[in-house]
Design a protein around this nucleic acid. Structure first.
Length: 828
RNA sequence: GCCGGGGUGGCGGAACUGGUAGACGCGCCGGACUCAAAAUCCGGUGGCCGCGAGGCCGUGUGGGUUCGAUUCCCUCCCCCGGCACCA
């Protein structure tokens, strides 16, 4: 009792040990009555120590989960490891250490560090995506999708990373067309690859967003990524040929402004349309386009180039002859690979027409002429003219009408295009789930029979890159297999799956990670999903978060789950930067939490992560606040320590008047803090939740000065209840310390199973309020009045209050606004 | 270029649907305790003017709506993120 400090390094490991002994965080998934699945995006098990980002994400996420548990929810809070992937394999190439070995070591290492946080993770419900018992089901899912036609193989122009020697999905190519993993510029290659048919769900993925409680900006990112454009495909008869060029447009209301058609250089009709005298020029242009990198070709800066084919198409409505051009700004991969050129009303077409000296006739009159310059395209709407029967209509109106007319005439078809492409899932790398397909010269693609799953990765392989084939393809023992269908000699598919396939369903596996019979028990999954609350970085907005949504919808259609979305609520933590720069190993600016934890303990570090930043915003690293938070935890500990006699079972609490000013003020402070902390924690606003708790601690000190003994002026039961409330409110934030304080009050662990305190709104509705009096918009006076006073009475009192009569100075009152219990605004 | 998000004291950050701007904390200043220091406890702290009472200014810029604007509308300037010849 002489020591007036607590030692986090003594109590933290002790309580973690006690919790483990009690099996405190094991929950009965089948029997839970108020399921709350609190999921965090799972970490990649690198060989490095945990960084600030891990603590910033997982600490507060656990605080929220503890808060929910105290509020009576059955909280399921698992964590696992996204353990497949390139870093481990590249490490193997460099060092010769096998990915399976380095990963196993890293996972064990990471678990030990994660345990320091004192989170409620249930280590009986974890997952390691690189474990055969996990990827056996990743392969099963692949085959389910395959059998449903949702996984397929085709040759297509795909992104290839020359550094990592593998293909990538569109979503994994970052701005400037560089590889998400290594930053190397990627190339387009025509390769036969496996895809998941995510485009089949484009509309549902878009519409489903409306129902989700996700940050609006994340939904926007997905909407833009899916890129829905409704429009029409139109057939243009090629003059003198029994062929039509099909274009796609979202603006058929500009069709009378078409002065040319443009085909992508790779368009299959180019040969046919090109006249003999233009053939050499067209061939040269196509060759030139082929040589251009995609980056050069995609540049909006580059001047428009193109070549006339010599051919003409017939305008489907006016019957005019329209020249057909080839130009590389038209992409074969979007729409039909052919567009109609409307230079007056499309910027690209405008630039092209200017470069090629083509006419630029206007067919839409802008509503506001001043809004559009003479030297630019007008892309807005307005009154249509020079457009045959449509002249005089509003362009919005014509847009719908002309589509109907084209459809009726058999010259067009309503069509929706998407920016979203099918998800390329095969990778020419070793450290991933092998694609469970066998290629048989007789039978073609043959799925590996379920009973032969998992297709395990061979251990003994050559990881070296650049040999032109994936490591698996070089393993004869792996590749050679008998066809399950005909028994003849066949080869395994040499590719592995994108690790985003693993992470698109891992949260289902946490439910029953050791079940060898099925991927998840459906009836339990239905209880726990969609996930109540997911947390993680926004960088996955168009990757993991999109893929998982697709996966759940596909699994639903295959009858394996009964819900539509994986994550009902989503929240993103911000990023902690160092001197404004993102922390990364290559920059050498990574902050390690280790020394701070060694000095102040895990609770202090956790609490600082929550108090020092606005959690969803993040911010620049600053360590001054850690000492302050650690000191505050000491202050809380001291508060309980100094008043420990309140919990002495032999003591009779008598002192103090419960109606005294101090007693009443402390009661008010308690209710106020409970209300504030509850609202703030529910909204993941940790900094203000802690601020509210600090206020209560301050109030405890203020109304029960610790150097005064015996306590004067304060009711002991009221003080006792206030301090107990401090402990409960602290429990999610600093779990070890709160447990220690809980024990100091003589209670059995655990405080996480103590009820979250409730506040009484009647107490907060004090009988007197302070009202502000404004004169001509400026605050001039304040007055104390009974709550609920009538507007008339308030106005009358305000007019006579303090300096107000002087300020008004007999001038007539022009206006008086009264907001009861808040303010009076007088205008003279 | 387009689409999001953001600009508030010396600093991190608060402010519900338009209603006391700056909660809480850091830092700084002062006091108590101490031989002293640390630790701790208490008080002060947006800027300018004023002895004071008090006044004026103040949420990136300039305007507007309103009794009243950090909050709503318009103009512009910066910062961050995403997309980018998607027809």
């Amino acid at each position: 009792m002489t020591e007036d400090r607590y030692d986090p390094h003594a109590i933290e490991p002790r309580w973690r040990g006690a919790w483990r002994e009690m099996d405190l965080y094991a929950i009965d998934l089948a029997g839970a009555e108020r399921p709350c699945y609190a999921l965090v995006m799972l970490p990649y098990p690198s060989g490095d120590r945990l960084h600030v980002g891990h603590w910033y994400h997982y600490g507060p996420a656990d605080t929220w989960a503890r808060f929910m548990r105290m509020r009576g929810f059955d909280v399921f809070e698992p964590i696992g490891f996204d353990a497949f992937g390139l870093p481990a394999e590249n490490y193997a190439v460099r060092t010769g250490i096998h990915p399976a070995d380095s990963t196993e070591r890293n996972v064990a290492n990471m678990i030990e560090q994660l345990k320091q946080m004192g989170a409620m993770w249930d280590w009986d419900h974890t997952a390691n995506t690189s474990d055969p018992s996990f990827y056996r089901w990743t392969q099963w899912i692949f085959l389910e999708l395959y059998r449903a036609g949702l996984a397929y193989r085709k040759e297509a122009p795909v992104w290839w990373c020359p550094q990592d020697q593998t293909v990538l999905a569109n979503e994994q190519v970052l701005e400037g067309n560089v590889c998400e993993r290594c930053g190397t510029p990627v190339e387009k290659k025509d390769l036969t690859q496996w895809f998941f048919r995510i485009t089949r769900y484009a509309d549902e993925l878009l519409d489903g967003l409306d129902e989700l409680e996700w940050p609006e900006r994340t939904k926007t990112l997905q909407r833009n990524w899916i890129g829905r454009s409704p429009g029409v495909e139109i057939d243009w008869q090629v003059e003198g040929k029994d062929r039509a060029i099909r274009t796609f447009t979202t603006r058929p209301d500009t069709i009378y402004g078409v002065t040319f058609l443009v085909l992508a250089p790779e368009h299959p009709l180019v040969d046919e349309v090109t006249t003999d005298d233009r053939r050499a020029a067209i061939e040269a242009y196509r060759e030139q386009a082929r040589r251009l990198s995609d980056i050069e070709r995609a540049s909006t800066e580059a001047a428009k180039t193109g070549e006339f084919t010599g051919g003409y198409a017939i305008h489907p409505l006016s019957g005019e002859r329209i020249p057909v051009w080839v130009a590389d700004f038209v992409l074969l991969t979007y729409g039909t690979g052919a567009v109609q050129g409307v230079p007056a009303h499309d910027e690209r077409d405008y630039d092209f027409a200017n470069a090629m000296d083509l006419p630029i006739p206007r067919v839409i009159e802008p509503d506001d002429l001043s809004a559009v310059g003479a030297d630019q395209a007008y892309t807005g709407h307005g009154i249509v003219h020079d457009s045959g029967p449509y002249s005089g209509m509003r362009s919005e109106e014509m847009l719908e009408k002309v589509i109907d007319d084209l459809e009726t005439a058999g010259k067009g078809e309503r069509k929706v295009n998407y920016r979203l492409r099918d998800w390329l899932v095969s990778r020419q790398r070793y450290w991933g789930a092998p694609i469970p397909i066998i290629h048989c010269p007789e039978c073609g693609e043959v799925p590996v029979p379920d009973e032969d799953l998992p297709v395990e990765l061979p251990y003994d392989v050559d990881f070296s890159l650049g040999a032109g084939k994936s490591p698996l393809e070089r393993s004869k023992t792996f590749m050679h297999v008998d066809c399950p269908n005909c028994g003849g000699p066949a080869r395994r598919d040499p590719d592995t799956m994108d690790t985003f396939v693993d992470s698109s369903w891992y949260f289902m596996r946490y439910i029953s990670p050791n079940d060898a019979e099925r991927p998840w028990p459906r009836e339990i999954a239905e209880r726990w999903l969609p996930i109540y609350q997911y947390s993680g970085g926004i960088e996955h907005a168009t990757l993991h978060l999109l893929y998982s949504r697709f996966m759940i919808k596909a699994l639903r259609d295959l009858g394996h789950v009964g819900f539509d979305e994986p994550f009902r609520r989503l929240i993103h933590q911000g990023t902690i930067t160092n001197h404004g720069a993102k922390m990364s190993k290559s920059r050498g600016n990574v902050i390690s939490p280790d020394e701070y934890i060694a000095e102040h303990g895990a609770d202090a570090f956790r609490a600082y992560m929550m108090f020092g930043f606005s959690w969803t915003e993040g911010g620049d690293w600053k360590d001054e606040g850690i000492r302050a938070v650690a000191a505050w935890l000491q202050r809380v500990w001291r508060l309980v320590h100094l008043h420990q006699d309140l919990w002495d079972p032999n003591a009779r609490l008598a002192g103090g008047d419960p109606e005294s000013e101090a007693s009443r003020a402390l009661v008010l402070a308690r209710h106020r803090s409970v209300k504030g902390a509850t609202d703030d924690l529910a909204a993941w606003q940790f900094n203000t939740a802690i601020a509210r708790l600090m206020e209560l601690v301050n109030a405890c000190y203020q109304y029960s000065p610790v150097d005064q003994a015996p306590r004067e002026g304060i009711s002991e039961p009221i003080l006792k209840e206030a301090i107990e409330t401090v402990i409960r409110l602290l429990a999610p934030i600093a779990p070890h310390l709160a447990e220690e304080l809980w024990a100091m009050t003589g209670r059995e662990p655990s405080v996480v199973d103590a009820a979250w305190p409730a506040h009484d709104p009647d107490v907060l509705a004090t009988e007197e309020v302070t009202m502000v009096i404004q004169v001509n918009g400026k605050v001039r006076e304040r007055m104390r009045v009974p709550r609920g006073l009538s507007e008339d009475e308030i106005r009358a009192r305000a007019l006579g209050h303090g300096r107000i009569p002087d300020l008004i100075d007999g001038k007539p009152l022009r206006k008086a606004v009264v907001i009861p219990d808040k303010l009076v605004s007088l205008v003279v």
